[in-house]
Simulated scan of single mutants.
Amino acid sequence: MVSRSRLKSILVGIALYAIASAAIAYFGMNAYTGRYGLTAQQELDQEIIALTSELVRLRAERAEGEKRVALLRSDRLDPDMLDERVRYQLDFAHPADLVRMNPTR
């Protein structure tokens, strides 16, 4: 009987160590590959860099657009800008003008 209780205590100890090591392995793998793990953090950093560069580009594009709109305001109307916009909207061109089609606009 003494040997059975000793064997049982050894097996219980081994089982506890196995369960603890399995839990540590699970949380360790999750910390590395999980949703908020190290690899996900690297991917998020790359996405932040890409989105930051896109934000800079969009801010520059918006500033350019605001500058062009400011030239069309009634208090300081630029005649050249007005002429350009009217010709663009109405598809008119002066016979002496050189017309260059821009497909991006």
Results as ranks from 00 to 15, higher is better:
Q41F: 03
M81S: 11
G65L: 15
L16F: 05
K8V: 12
E64Q: 12
A70I: 01
L98A: 06
Y36C: 05
T39A: 10
R6F: 04
M101R: 14
G13N: 14
A50V: 01
A31V: 00
D91L: 06
V86R: 11
V86S: 00
F92H: 04
G34M: 08
G28R: 07
S74I: 00
I48A: 10
I49A: 15
R62C: 10
L58Q: 15
I19W: 07
A40T: 08
E61W: 06
R85F: 09
G28W: 02
R57V: 01
R87N: 01
I19R: 05
E66H: 06
E47I: 03
I14F: 12
D45M: 07
D45E: 14
L11P: 05
V99Y: 05
L11C: 02
A70G: 07
A25R: 01
Q42F: 07
I14S: 10
L51D: 02
I48W: 03
L38K: 07
A50F: 01
L98S: 11
L44W: 03
L55I: 03
Y36P: 04
E43K: 14
R62A: 14
V12N: 14
R59F: 00
G34R: 02
S5L: 15
A63G: 00
G65V: 08
H94G: 08
L44V: 01
S3L: 11
K8A: 15
L55W: 07
A25T: 09
R87H: 05
R73Q: 15
F92A: 03
Y32K: 06
I10W: 01
A93G: 05
S21A: 15
L7G: 02
A31M: 04
G34K: 08
D45L: 13
P79Y: 01
A60M: 03
L11K: 14
L72E: 04
I10C: 02
D91Q: 06
A20L: 14
M101D: 11
I14A: 13
E47W: 06
E66L: 15
P95V: 08
L58I: 09
S5R: 12
F92W: 08
A23I: 13
E64W: 05
